[in-house]
Nucleic acid binder design. Structure first.
Length: 552
DNA sequence: ATCTGATGCGTCC
DNA sequence: TGGACGCCCTCAGA
């Protein structure tokens, strides 16, 4: 037993029981344990536990470790943080896990992202000057006065479970073929999936050797995609053949240690200039000519030296305007016609790392940023000013290890430029299951428009992409991909789990072993659930438990 | 069932 | 300015 192993590592460990009803983990040591326990309780009464520990550090006497029930967060007794069923109880000694303010926990947080709690609007900035008057007269009439009714893709239409062998890090829809979704993973593999034919999917494993951070299609060439990776290269891949060439390699000499290994994160394409823009983990921007495949000019320092630049975005209306964001807590706007270190037009300050920043998709006049301080920010270049955000929306997305970073993305088809989608980190208790929904937020009001979830998806969905032409949302959750559609557009039978089309990529291995062939997924009774409850809270989507329906 | 490790950033010295 | 350390809701595999 591991606890025993650990115990062996110390001269002596005492496990303290809080109540008599609890059993000691080892009966052999019982006498010893009880004796030590008495000692410990004695010393604790007198407040000497720490002294005892100190003494034991210095001398040869045995170390005593109290395993009395304490909060795992603040290490103090009297309360415990953690899951009670599907509801997480916060540690009351820490600031709110959601908004980071002291004095309350998540449950009582006024910013709690749950429709019934409402939303506290941020103050709206407005300056009464002549310029604004002009904008109000000339530009406001062009902004659609009535928001289109939001169409929310809220039902899983199909999925590939364990499609990738590592977690999904980026998604991109094909620019012309409506049903093709590209996905990149932590291992650097590139997936191409036709989610209408469902079984037409492939994973190219030779594109990159580690995290595929960003993908963009080559303008005017539908089947060529660029990707930036933490292996320090930009790849250019032909989707038909899977043949990939490298545009740039920042680590030509291979691994020389962490201090010199360069990784590429943010990437975008300036079609007018015929340039791929990428940025690395040391704060530098590179421009690569797409015709010659050669870097143009020298790398330019655009963020704090040595800090990671995680996002680049060219303005959809003014492609020479570049938006960058990174680990130096800033998003910055640049004019790439005259870009050099320190020449940013605006520096948008955040209190922590900025995961993403995007210009609004139609007018390019707004910026939506996601920061690890658990806030979404809207910067409005027309109706606000760039000194401070016109709105801050508290939203749970601050988990920074083990998961792909959350990025709020605009709905590309929303002409009012107000709908954004982002996965939620913190879970909510939905009918007894702890689920992490994907949130649709009206960034003009801060209102939560919709939270979509599926009882079968128990993992967090940090990567989300709305389709540029259809009512479709693609989600990457752990190693799986999901396609969501509005309920009314799902031609599948409602309320029946077997209505969903699901492929289990992870089941292939087992199946190959059993059947002795390497064929693609097919209808196979062996993989239908055997009386398993599909809505079991944990691992509901483990391939062996889930219905595989192929075609309807 | 329970444990572990892969991991990135913030804070401290 | 850099290295060591610690960390609240992960996830998958052993």
């Amino acid at each position: 037993m591991p606890p025993q192993t650990r115990r062996m590592a110390f001269p002596k460990v005492v496990i303290e029981r809080e109540t008599d009803s609890e059993q000691s983990s080892s009966e052999e040591d019982e006498a010893d344990v009880e004796q030590e326990e008495e000692e410990l309780l004695e010393s604790e009464k007198e407040g000497k536990v720490e002294e005892a520990l100190d003494e034991k550090k210095k001398g040869k006497s045995p170390i005593t470790i109290s395993l009395k029930k304490v909060c795992k967060v603040c290490k103090k007794p009297g309360h415990e943080a953690g899951f009670k069923g599907a509801t997480y109880i916060d540690c009351p000694m820490k600031p709110c896990f959601l908004c980071k303010m002291p004095g309350h926990t998540t449950v009582a947080c006024p910013h709690r992202v749950a429709t019934e709690y409402g939303v506290v609007p941020a103050p709206h900035k407005s300056t009464r000057n002549a310029l604004e008057y002009m904008f109000e007269r000339q530009i406001r009439p062009r902004v659609p006065p009535i928001k289109p009714a939001y169409v929310i893709p809220d039902q899983v239409s199909c999925a590939v479970i364990r499609y990738h062998s590592r977690r999904v890090t980026s998604l991109e829809f094909h620019p012309t073929k409506n049903n093709i979704l590209l996905s990149g993973d932590k291992k650097g593999q590139l997936g191409v999936w036709d989610f209408v034919k469902v079984h037409e999917k492939i994973v190219y494993g030779n594109v990159h050797s580690c995290i595929l951070n960003n993908m963009k299609f080559k303008p005017a060439s539908d089947d060529t995609v660029y990707a930036a990776s933490s292996d320090g290269t930009i790849s250019c891949t032909d989707l038909e053949t899977g043949i990939s060439v490298s545009l740039m390699n920042l680590n030509p000499d291979g691994w020389q240690g962490r201090n010199s290994w360069r990784m590429l994160y943010g990437m975008d394409i300036n079609a007018e200039k015929g340039a791929v823009l990428v940025a690395d983990n040391f704060g530098f921007l590179y421009l690569v000519d797409t015709r010659s495949n050669d870097p143009t000019g020298k790398p330019i320092l655009i963020h704090k030296k040595g800090s990671k630049v995680v996002g680049l975005h060219c303005n959809p209306v003014q492609p020479d305007l570049l938006l960058s964001c990174g680990n130096d807590h800033f998003a910055r706007i640049w004019d790439i016609r005259r870009i050099e270190a320190g020449s940013s037009i605006y520096d948008l300050a955040h209190s922590r790392v900025v995961n993403s920043a995007y210009f609004s998709p139609v007018s390019g006049s707004k910026i939506l940023s996601t920061s690890q301080d658990n806030r979404l920010r809207i910067w409005d270049s027309i109706f606000g000013n760039m000194d401070s955000p016109s709105r801050e929306i508290v939203h749970s997305h601050d988990f920074n290890r083990h998961l792909t970073a959350f990025k709020a993305e605009w709905d590309p088809r929303d002409s009012s430029e107000s709908l954004a989608v982002i996965g939620r980190y913190i879970s909510e208790n939905y009918d007894g299951a702890a689920l992490h929904p994907i949130d649709f937020i009206d960034v003009s009001t801060g209102q939560l428009v919709a939270e979509v979830m599926d009882p079968n998806i128990t993992t967090i969905s940090p990567v989300n992409k709305l389709h540029p032409r259809d009512d479709v949302l693609a989600s990457g959750s752990s190693r799986s991909l999901f396609i969501w559609k509005p309920k009314e557009k799902c031609e599948l039978v409602e309320q029946k789990d077997e209505g969903k089309i699901v492929i289990c990529a992870g089941a292939e291995k087992k199946r190959n072993r059993k059947l002795g062939d390497g064929s693609d997924d097919s209808d196979d009774d062996k993989f239908r659930p055997k009386g398993k409850n599909l809505k079991s809270k944990k691992y509901a989507l483990k391939s062996s438990q889930y219905t595989i329906k192929v075609k309807r």
